[in-house]
């Protein structure tokens, strides 16, 4: 189906709009194909998390309710009839800090389960992205449609690198919201104002959007690895995971054996997956004057994402990686086109 906006523009000005008309349909297909990993499993995990949280809060009340009295109106804790004073706490645990931590801890901790699913869903999703439909022969149906192999491969990459993870971030935002809903009666029960202690100090939408935007930039660093998984998926006659892992393991082993125990590939992989991006984020936090010194929560913002993007595209290592991305993708597209 051609894009009506593009059609109108073409009619008015003879203007050629790049045809993105089929991409939403291709993304939707990827979503349907990966719904278990990106929706069903996270929803189940989210359900369990909320359930465990409710159960945990209730059991804490039952177990310690008569020993410890938490007064969230005056911000006092009384243990066995003895009220603790400020000096009993670490400086960091005053009310000001408590309200900053509470909402983030609640929504962050409950989302940990979902974020842990993400690498697995992306890893296995990409490994099967160009393999499963060859195995069950349904690639012959996809190929009978007027969609180019390049578009197919790039859409799959875009889905697993960006769209799919964004679905999970959306779920985390929703789960975070419900986690805060669950904590709300708990605060009321202890005489506090949920609005003051939880809902106002926690920017629960913007902090997830900020985190998601930063995740996209991190995803750009991972592109060579994601593209490698697709190449393995496009090539493998069976068991794509073996074809993805064994060559890497073999190169590292050969390096270690013949290069005095040194391995450039393993170091490069570690840099790619964690260290390079961590340096960039470290710089951003330092320049923002937050990371060190006072205890203060610093949410990731969209601004941080742009700063990280700026630091990435001016980083030579980033581009060396993208050369590999290009080569692996070209290989995957070629195999997709001609391998029967």
């Amino acid at each position: 189906m051609s894009n009506p906006v593009a059609q109108t523009l073409e009619r008015i000005k003879g203007f050629k709009v790049p045809n993105i008309g089929k991409i939403p349909a291709l993304l939707k297909r990827e979503f349907l194909d990966s719904k278990t990993g990106f929706l069903t499993v996270p929803l189940v995990v989210a359900g369990f998390t909320l359930f465990a949280m409710i159960l945990g809060l209730i059991s804490l009340e039952i177990q310690f309710g008569d020993k410890i009295d938490l007064d969230l109106r005056n911000f006092e804790v009384t243990v066995d009839g003895e009220t603790l004073t400020d000096s009993d706490f670490d400086d960091d645990m005053g009310k000001e800090n408590f309200v900053q931590i509470l909402g983030r801890a609640v929504s962050g901790a409950t989302s940990a389960g979902i974020i842990m699913i993400l690498p697995f869903v992306v890893f296995f999703g990409l490994l099967s992205s160009l393999y499963d439909d060859r195995r069950d022969r349904s690639f012959l149906f996809w190929k009978s449609m007027p969609v180019s192999d390049t578009k197919e491969v790039l859409t799959k990459l875009g889905y697993y690198a960006i769209v799919g993870p964004m679905i999970l971030f959306g779920l985390m935002m929703v789960l975070g919201f419900f986690a805060m809903v669950v904590v709300t009666p708990f605060i009321w029960y202890h005489g506090g104002s949920a609005l003051d202690l939880l809902w106002i100090p926690t920017p629960f939408i913007s902090m997830w959007i900020g985190a998601a935007a930063n995740f996209i930039v991190y995803g750009l660093w991972l592109l060579p690895i994601l593209a490698w998984l697709m190449l393995a998926s496009a090539y493998a006659p069976k068991a794509p995971m073996i074809f993805a892992i064994v060559p890497v393991g073999a190169i590292i082993t050969v390096e270690v054996l013949f290069n005095n125990g040194q391995t450039y590939l393993a170091v490069a992989l570690l840099d790619r997956i964690a260290l390079d991006y961590a340096h960039i984020m470290g710089d951003i936090f330092e320049k923002g004057g937050h990371f060190h010194g006072d205890f203060e929560i610093r949410d990731l913002s969209i601004g941080d994402a742009f700063r990280a993007l700026g630091a990435s595209i001016t980083n030579a290592k980033f581009w060396v990686g993208q050369l590999f991305t290009g080569a692996f993708l070209a290989g995957a597209i070629y195999l997709r086109r001609y391998k029967i």
Binding site: L32, D33, D133, D136, R137, S138, F139, L140, F141, W142, K143, S144, M145, P146, V147, S148, D149, K151, R337
Partner: peptide
């Protein structure tokens, strides 16, 4: 191929529709 498939249809092999 992509352009061609606007005017050409094919069924190669039985049951190639995506099973999921």
């Amino acid at each position: 191929r992509a352009k061609l498939m606007e005017d050409v249809c094919f069924i190669s092999d039985v049951a190639t529709l995506p099973r999921w």
